[in-house]
């Protein structure tokens, strides 16, 4: 098993920041808002490794900073500090020292992202097939027939009716939009996928089928994934390992079954106890 991603000391502070920011925020003081300068310490000192084909769960309540972690890694938001190394077969990329063009290249070719809000991941003004085509065209695939075949194959794989390949995603149900987003994210066969609360807000039955799909894809394609969720059920189903976050800090990390059956931190114990 090879490492695909190594994250060390990842931090993101919104606001001016001050010397007391770090000691004045975090799980011990129950806030991520610095009382001295008003900055929000969204995440501080987040470190983890991800291996090829592995699913890592990042769990926490809203405000824990869990989404900020994947947004930083997908270059949606520049972090304030820390580093991340992406090991791409025989090359390695120091993610935050790349220039904007290199970052966009990785984002378009080697990473995939599925957002909670399909509006962020899909262009609602072009067809479902067009959304996938866009990502393929970024990879310089210039054959219309091949693009169309691949788009259809991806939509079929994510169980979107092929009769809807040319429809606008804004006319799709929430679950279907997520399927199109997943198909789009997978278009370039990325080795690394980020999923940010992808099933939140969907009907339970729809949630279950999306989660099944994610697991099947992980088994078929051996895609490494970082799954952000507040839902312990999603973590239990998908993730082999998990990290638990609170007010921007990682408070616990471990094997998923160990975190659920033998949580170490008071907060995780409360979280697990309230869910089971």
């Amino acid at each position: 098993m090879n490492k695909i991603l190594e994250v060390r000391g990842l931090s993101k502070i919104y606001g001016p920041g001050c010397p007391q920011c770090l000691e004045s925020t975090g799980p011990e003081v129950d806030t991520n808002l610095c009382p001295h300068c008003g900055s929000v310490v969204a995440i501080h000192d987040v470190s983890f490794d991800l291996f090829e084909g592995e699913i890592l769960g990042v769990m926490g309540e809203s405000g824990s900073g869990k989404s900020t972690v994947v947004k930083a890694l997908y270059f949606d938001q520049a972090p304030s500090g820390g580093e991340a190394i992406f090991y791409d077969s025989d090359r390695q990329h120091d993610l935050f020292s790349l220039n904007a063009a290199q970052q966009r290249w990785l984002r378009n070719h080697r990473f995939g992202m599925v957002y909670q809000n399909p509006n962020l991941g899909l262009n609602f003004n072009i067809s479902a097939g067009g959304n996938i085509a866009e990502r393929l065209l970024m990879s310089d695939l210039m054959d219309y027939g091949a693009i169309r075949e691949r788009a259809k194959a991806l939509l079929a794989r994510t169980e979107v009716l092929l009769s809807r390949v040319d429809d606008l995603p804004k006319n799709f149900s929430g679950g279907m939009q997520q399927r199109v987003q997943i198909a789009k994210a997978l278009a370039t066969r990325p080795p690394l996928l980020f999923l940010d609360e992808v099933t939140t807000g969907l009907d339970l039955s729809v949630q279950a089928r999306i989660l099944d799909l994610i697991l099947e894809i992980q088994q078929e394609l051996k895609t490494a994934m970082v799954v952000v969720t507040h839902d312990l059920g999603v973590i239990r189903l998908l993730a082999g390992r998990a990290i638990v976050m609170k007010y921007g800090r990682v408070i616990e990390t471990g094997l998923t079954d160990q975190i659920l059956e033998d949580p170490q931190h008071a907060y995780t114990q409360r979280l697990v106890a309230s869910a089971l």
Binding site: N123, I126, G129, G130, E134, R135, L137, M138, I147
Partner: peptide, 8 residues
């Protein structure tokens, strides 16, 4: 790519 999507 987005221009090409228009053509697509």
């Amino acid at each position: 790519s987005r221009l090409l999507v228009k053509l697509y």
